[in-house]
């Protein structure tokens, strides 16, 4: 499944989409960035509610395929621009983290 495939569902919308062809191989969930840093893996879709600019550094470090902001969380314009610049896909969904995880599980 790719990030593009997720966006075909109305449940997700793109905040930053520099590379929609990124493959999603697995899912990681977490909000404590110091924790996520050492545990999220390459090609994970990372579900979080954290919207601080540091999510970009963590996603970049772990090389996740996309960040999914749950519960309708969004980010400001500066973070959006930086995400495009650093080539980090960010999606948002109104589903909560559990619902998002279940939804992804059905697709993987």
């Amino acid at each position: 499944m790719t990030v593009r495939d997720l966006l075909t569902s109305e449940k997700f919308s793109a905040i930053s989409l520099p590379d929609e062809s990124r493959e999603i191989k697995n899912v990681y969930i977490g909000d404590l960035l110091s924790w996520v840093m050492g545990r999220a893996k390459a090609d994970d879709a990372w579900i979080t509610i954290m919207s601080n600019v540091n999510i970009l550094a963590v996603a970049s470090l772990a090389d996740t395929s996309c960040i999914i902001l749950a519960e309708g969380v969004t980010v400001d314009e500066t973070i959006k621009a930086t995400a495009m610049d650093k080539e980090i896909n960010i999606l948002t969904t109104n589903m909560n983290i559990y619902e998002t995880a279940i939804y992804l599980n059905g697709l993987l």
């Binding site: 404590l32 960035l33 110091s34 996520v36 840093m37 954290m50 601080n52 600019v53 540091n54 550094a57 963590v58």
Partner: peptide, 10 residues
């Protein structure tokens, strides 16, 4: 801040 955000924000 470092535990939660992983680092000081730039």
């Amino acid at each position: 801040v470092i535990a939660v955000l992983g680092a000081f924000p730039p």
